[in-house]
């Protein structure tokens, strides 16, 4: 039984295809999803979505954050947009980090909501930089 991976942005369905396994960057750690996975709803941090076919990564996409819904037969990733890992631009990523840092430094620490938004943004931007030459994945 294949697993259907859907990556959906608010504007359109970005990707929908059968995969053997997918690793998504859950808010509390990476989650490997195989067919028959228990039903799960999770927040996503910024990071790489790795698509596995025949025990090898065939595609890697960077997602800036979002949510994922997992059931036995499908994995739906709700993200704002995806970038193919090979197309990530180091200059843009660095720029995003410095912009996010500036926003993070400027934020009012007593405003929990704004603080959370700013730190999420910084984590996501940092993840974009890290995704350009990722360490994980090679381990399998």
């Amino acid at each position: 039984m294949p697993l259907v991976l859907e990556i959906i942005s608010p504007e359109k369905l970005l990707l929908s295809r059968d995969v053997d396994m997918v690793v998504i960057p859950g808010a509390e750690g990476d989650i490997g999803v195989l067919p028959g996975h228990a039903k799960l709803i999770t927040g996503l941090r910024g990071g790489l979505v790795d698509i596995y076919e025949n025990n090898a990564i065939t595609d890697r996409f960077f997602v800036p954050g979002g949510f994922a819904e997992v059931t036995e037969s499908y994995c739906a990733v709700l993200a704002d947009g995806i970038i193919r890992q090979s197309e990530l631009d180091p200059a843009k990523a660095a720029e995003a980090v410095s912009a996010a840092k500036a926003a993070y430094d400027a934020v009012d620490m007593n405003d929990a909501e704004a603080y959370r938004v700013a730190s999420d943004r910084l984590i996501s931007a940092q993840a974009m930089v890290d995704s350009i030459s990722p360490q994980r994945g090679e381990k399998g």
Binding site: P10, E11, F67, L78
Partner: peptide
């Protein structure tokens, strides 16, 4: 455009 936005809204609604 409205059609294309439906999958996201549907999953979001389910969740």
């Amino acid at each position: 455009q409205a059609e294309a936005s439906r999958p996201y809204a549907k999953r979001m609604g389910d969740m």
